[in-house]
């Protein structure tokens, strides 16, 4: 069941670039949360309507009873969220998303771009817990956009993550797709899981199809509700030739079945 929780903020601070980290404690959400689940956070208090809509964020990590959300500050909603202080109460609708990452592969290649890496980070933890082999690609334009670098180090994932920067200021120089083909063909029964900017996911999907490797994308979209009732956050399902809801039929989709 989905619930609207009133939670207390335990941390809300600037990380780097335009990225902030929000943490709050809630035992129920922590117990229910699975990789690819997301939450809808109301940036304002009850009866304040501007900004009005909740914002969808991926659950980036769960540490004991604490939920970690990395968010980029783009507009009025996220700007308002930065003004929240430790101890402030916020409304969080959770856990959301019906279709999560499949687990029937032998090797997982995760490809995250920018803040999209936060849509894959909790999966990394769970894959390690289950002893499933994986590698993660983390790509950004410039070094200061590597907002989850500390998280990677703190969680000893340095050997699992290959970092790419477009300007070469950290890690390998280039796009996440630079070595994707080779990496995806290294192991048998590999699947690519991707989350990030639309253009990046399209490029990843194109390569996956070229080399006939399964590819799943965890999508985001402009959504009003997050639980299937507004029909606003749709994507084209090419098999059914109809629009399906990112929040309810997703957020994870087999890219072979959708029009990215």
């Amino acid at each position: 069941m989905i619930k609207d929780y009133k939670v207390e903020i335990t941390e809300n601070r600037f990380i780097s670039g335009i990225t902030w980290l929000l943490k709050f404690k809630n035992k129920e959400i922590a117990e229910k949360a699975k990789p690819a689940h997301f939450v809808m956070v109301r940036p304002t208090s009850e009866h304040q309507y501007d900004p009005m809509m909740r914002r969808a964020f991926a659950i980036a990590d769960v540490v004991d009873d604490e939920i970690w959300i990395y968010y980029d500050v783009y507009g009025r909603g996220t700007k308002t969220l930065t003004e929240k202080k430790v101890g402030d109460e916020i409304e969080v609708l959770a856990p959301l998303g019906k279709n999560l990452f499949p687990e029937n592969f032998d090797y997982y290649l995760l490809v995250g771009g920018g803040i999209g890496f936060a849509g894959l980070s909790y999966l990394m933890k769970k894959l390690r817990e289950k002893n499933k082999p994986f590698k993660a690609i983390y790509g950004v334009r410039r070094k200061e956009q590597l907002s989850m670098l500390d998280w990677i180090k703190e969680n000893d994932f340095e050997n699992n993550v290959i970092i790419y920067t477009e300007d070469g200021s950290y890690g390998k120089k280039g796009l996440v797709t630079r070595d994707l083909k080779e990496l995806a063909l290294e192991n048998e029964n590999t699947a690519i899981f991707t989350c990030g900017p639309h253009g990046m996911m399209k490029a990843v999907d194109k390569i996956a199809k070229e080399i006939k490797v399964p590819c799943y994308a965890s999508l985001e979209s402009k959504m009003a509700c997050g639980f299937g009732i507004c029909i606003g956050c749709v994507i084209k399902d090419v098999e059914k030739d109809s629009y399906v809801r990112v929040c309810y039929e997703g957020p994870v989709f087999d890219t072979y079945k959708i029009e990215l």
């Binding site: 501007d50 402009k222 009003a224 507004c230 606003g232 956050c233 749709v234 629009y243």
Partner: peptide
Amino acid sequence: TGNPPQRIVETPAGMLNSI
């Protein structure tokens, strides 16, 4: 099938939809 995305956008104390 409805309209192509983008279907919704937030506006001051409201939203526009075109589902």
